[in-house]
Nucleic acid binder design. Structure first.
Lengths: 261, 261
DNA sequence: CATCTGTGTCCAATATACCGTACATGTGAT
DNA sequence: ATCACATGTACGGTATATTGGACACAGATG
């Protein structure tokens, strides 16, 4: 990632990067793990991981939980995250927008952002459908897999996009290869139209709608999305896009704005 | 602060500790600062702070905001905090408990925890009072200043308590000195009775009620509190304590329990 | 003009953080 | 008993992270 600059083999890693690699890994796994397991799965020296884990435990960044010496993200991270959320106070308005979308469309509505060089669902309202069609909140997903991804990188140049997205993220879950040049074309199209919709490429039965929520810098700081069954999505396309744009307009001042002026 | 183990002068600080010192400092300040200012105010070498800030920026732990090169807590921290909150899923039940307390008492209700070796208000419902009597959410406060503090350290031995709480935290905001031995007596009393109430020692017009929320380890993982005008508090003492205990009982299984079992 | 403060960058010295390796333990399989 | 493996601890060598100080610049102040 960011963290993994793996220039070449045989380099010593910086403690700080290793530490956040551990934290990110635990977040991805969403469960407590033993230091040993962490070391094995992220491919880091065991002694280093033990040392870092102990340091992080002392600072409250990690906590023992789940027994057997397993550790998970700690309370301090919750406090820091709450401070961020309080400063860039998008949560309240975001929930309102999702609520509104849910009422108007009865479909699954999501608020999405970049997490480093991947995509993540920050908040979600499940639709009224009897079956559940959605990614989990907080999971990082390759940018090219998502409709929102086309919008979230649109402020970068072609070359920057290719540098930014890890090469292996162009491989789809079914093993197919997505041509990066094709992706770029879609990015530019999404940029021009201010929206992107497609039949999901990670499953075979949903249609996805995404519109940008522009921050103060003028480009997409986040997206609002709908994930719908294919027939419903295509049948209600105009209505859904109208709802999304209206909801996004209501948010357009919120992200990256301080609560206390 | 917590992180500062300052054994003696003249020691090199570990990057990780320094980094989290920076993060904690920004959280306390609740505003974006320039690296230079951070270095000056936490008493760290400028060159170190610049290097660390740049590293943290690259990882998304810090973000530029506020212009002029100022930095504040970053989006990644929000994601990590959200993962913590999702794992130890106390938020929903916590809000319900505060809601209930607010309805029953019309007073300011708080959910509080330890943040390292200090006390912090995690969530709060303002009371119906025309005036506002409360600490800000997310600020760290010396443990001895608060009613909850008596409960949150009760699982420690006398000596552990004295080691745990920074000596200067026994000095009250008005300059008075709180005798640690006296504090210990109150801790043991609170432990026996399963509650603590007093006229606030940080102002002259409120009365505070605190009851423990016990985690799976059996000791106070958090507290529920009411902050009331003195007359009202004393007049409604029994009623308020009853409400608090009921609300705490409703939470007692929640903290430190995994959502996905 | 000179001077001072606030800001950011660059650099070399050395204290030490990272890591490989060995050791100690427990558990389960053969 | 012997092996294999998972887990945690201990320790020394060396690559390097941390740090003080030099440098550059801009704005304010006198």
């Amino acid at each position: 990632m960011d963290a993994v600059q793996d220039e070449a083999a045989g380099k010593r890693a910086r403690g700080l990067d290793r530490a956040f690699e551990i934290l990110d890994f635990l977040r991805q796994k969403r469960q407590a793990l033993k230091p040993n397991e962490i070391a094995a799965q992220i491919g880091a020296p065991r002694s280093s991981v033990y040392e870092l884990v102990n340091l992080l435990l002392q600072n409250g960044i990690l906590e023992f939980t789940g027994g057997e010496g397993r550790v998970y993200l700690g309370r301090k991270l919750y406090f820091l995250g709450a401070a961020y959320e309080n400063h860039f106070d998008f949560t309240r308005e975001c929930e309102a927008a999702l609520e509104q979308l849910a009422n108007e469309t009865r479909e699954t509505a999501q608020f999405c952002m970049l997490d480093g060089n991947r995509y993540t669902v920050v908040r979600m309202r499940e639709g009224a459908r009897p079956f559940r069609i959605s990614t989990d909140v907080g999971q990082s997903v390759p940018i090219p897999w998502t409709a929102s991804g086309r919008l979230l990188v649109a402020h970068l140049s072609d070359q920057e996009i290719l540098n930014f997205i890890p090469a292996q993220d162009f491989r789809l879950p079914n093993g197919d290869w997505l041509d990066p040049q094709n992706f770029i074309v879609e990015v530019r199209q999404a940029e021009r139209e201010g929206l992107f919709t497609f039949n999901s490429i990670v499953d075979s039965f949903t249609h996805c709608f995404a519109v940008p929520v522009r921050g103060e810098e003028g480009y997409a700081a986040a997206t609002l999305c709908l994930v719908t069954p294919r027939d419903d999505g295509i049948a209600n396309r105009d209505h859904y896009l109208h709802c999304l744009k209206k909801a996004a307009a209501g948010l357009e001042h919120a992200p990256a704005r301080s609560k206390r002026g």
